[in-house]
């Protein structure tokens, strides 16, 4: 298998944690809320899923536990920012620190243990294609994530729910005036984002690298937040961004396999460096950000 085939085959799986967390954050930000706690939400979801799977509960229950646990933690964020109109940046950081702390606390006795990952399902026919065949051999969660991406895209493009979410984010006062409860919409969006971050962490911990190590999320939650900016709040572009980061995180492995003499630390920091560079390029186009950005992002709502 050459490097290109290797990256194509692994890209979607590597992208899934980024994709799930970024889709969740997209919905939260579209409703006008900036939740910077994704890293901690993912870490909590990861440890909960790992514990459930390790104890024999199975992958499905593992994902359920991760989704519920992280949604519950994100509701604390909602309580503080919507109930008490706290600074969203500070509250997000607090949730992040709390989530990472809880993750380390719960996972302490599971350090370095492993669980079994899920089998991969191949699309008949397509998976036999040369070079790109690997793209069509993925585990069930990857397939579900692709469907979820489509569903969220359709929700924003065609459904009333998508319109309400955007109205609440763009102009909460107007949304309130025509009878929508801004707070309720935002609470639900935050809980959804929390559950998605939990699923993302679960995927990372029990499928992608089914081994528990404290700090295993390793900045992926932060990259997911950056992805929402890269994707200029558009589902399709966020998907492409997640694939790019999936590929970048595999490039390190591919480079090592070909015996390239590059320090491993440089390869590990590649996703962070790419984030910084892409963030600079995209943000420099101020018009693009203004056009697609969410008008009330980060501002507390007061009637």
């Amino acid at each position: 298998m050459n490097a290109i085939e290797f990256i194509l085959a692994g890209m979607l799986a590597a992208a899934t944690p980024f994709l799930l967390a970024a889709l969740g954050e997209l919905v939260v930000e579209r409703a006008g809320v900036l939740n910077l706690g994704v890293e901690g939400l993912m870490a909590l979801g990861a440890v909960l899923a790992f514990i459930v799977v390790y104890q024999g509960g199975g992958h499905f229950l593992g994902f359920v536990a991760a989704g519920l646990g992280s949604a519950a933690l994100s509701l604390i964020f909602a309580f503080v920012t919507l109930g008490f109109r706290a600074n969203q940046v500070a509250a997000g950081l607090a949730i992040g620190i709390l989530g990472q702390g809880l993750s380390a606390l719960f996972g302490k006795s599971y350090e370095s243990l492993t669980v079994k990952a899920l089998p991969r399902l191949a699309v008949p026919g397509l998976s036999d294609l040369p070079v790109v065949g690997g793209l069509f051999v993925q585990d069930i969660v990857v397939w579900i994530s692709l469907v979820a991406t489509l569903a969220i895209w359709a929700m924003f493009a065609y459904s009333k729910l998508g319109l309400v979410l955007r109205a609440v984010g763009e102009n909460p006062k107007a949304a309130h005036a025509i009878g929508y409860s801004v707070i309720t919409v935002r609470v639900l969006a935050i809980a959804f984002g929390g559950a998605m971050a939990g699923f993302a962490g679960a995927y990372a911990a029990v499928i992608y690298t089914p081994l528990w190590a404290d700090g295993m999320i390793a900045g992926r939650g932060w990259i997911a937040i950056a992805l929402v900016v890269f994707g200029t709040w558009l589902t399709g572009r966020i998907f492409l961004g997640a694939c790019l980061f999936g590929a970048v995180s595999l490039m390190g492995l591919a480079a090592q396999a070909t015996g390239l003499d590059v320090p491993s630390q440089l390869l590990s920091s590649l996703p962070y460096l790419v984030t910084i560079i892409v963030l600079g390029i995209i943000s420099a186009d101020r018009r693009l950000l203004k056009l697609n950005g969410v008008a009330s992002l980060g501002e507390p709502f007061e009637r």
Binding site: L36, V89, A218, G219, W222, I223, I225, A226, V229, Q265, L266, S268, S269, Y272, L273, T275, I276, L279, G280, I281, S283, A284, R286, L289
Partner: peptide, 20 residues
């Protein structure tokens, strides 16, 4: 100069610093 979000950039640089 590039209008990039300082929260994300400064955090990413911390992760790079740890690798350095």
């Amino acid at each position: 100069r590039l209008n990039a979000n300082e929260i994300l950039v400064s955090l990413m640089l911390s992760l790079v610093a740890a690798q350095l």
